[in-house]
């Protein structure tokens, strides 16, 4: 099987590996503390850990896009901003 057509690069491979590890981590967390810690946060509907992760990831993607569109190509700042955002989401959503 030839996978050259997928055109892997180191950064994208690291990106997907990170996502995969986060998912595994969430699975382990859920296994250790089942139930997903549901609560009603500032979005006024019930969210579990998984929902908060999804909101963090999707939000981060849009933060990065906004950074590229409005500021410039240096995505490290956007990444930092995304991390802050993710922490906020996990704390209050």
């Amino acid at each position: 099987m030839n996978f050259a057509w997928m055109a892997w690069t180191a950064p994208t491979a690291i990106f997907f590996a990170t996502i995969f590890l986060i998912l595994v981590g969430m699975g382990v967390w859920e296994y250790a503390r089942p139930g997903g810690a549901p609560r009603v946060g500032i979005l006024r509907f019930e969210t579990t850990r998984g929902d908060r992760l999804f909101v963090s990831l999707l939000g981060s993607a849009f933060i990065c896009l906004a950074w590229l569109g409005l500021v410039g190509p240096n995505l490290w700042w956007a990444l930092g901003l995304s991390l802050v955002y993710a922490v906020l989401v996990f704390r209050w959503v």
Binding site: G27, E30, Y31, T48, G50, D51, F54
Partner: peptide, 9 residues
């Protein structure tokens, strides 16, 4: 089961 809601989505 683990992640059922998210899998469904």
């Amino acid at each position: 089961f683990l992640g059922d809601k998210h899998l469904f989505f």
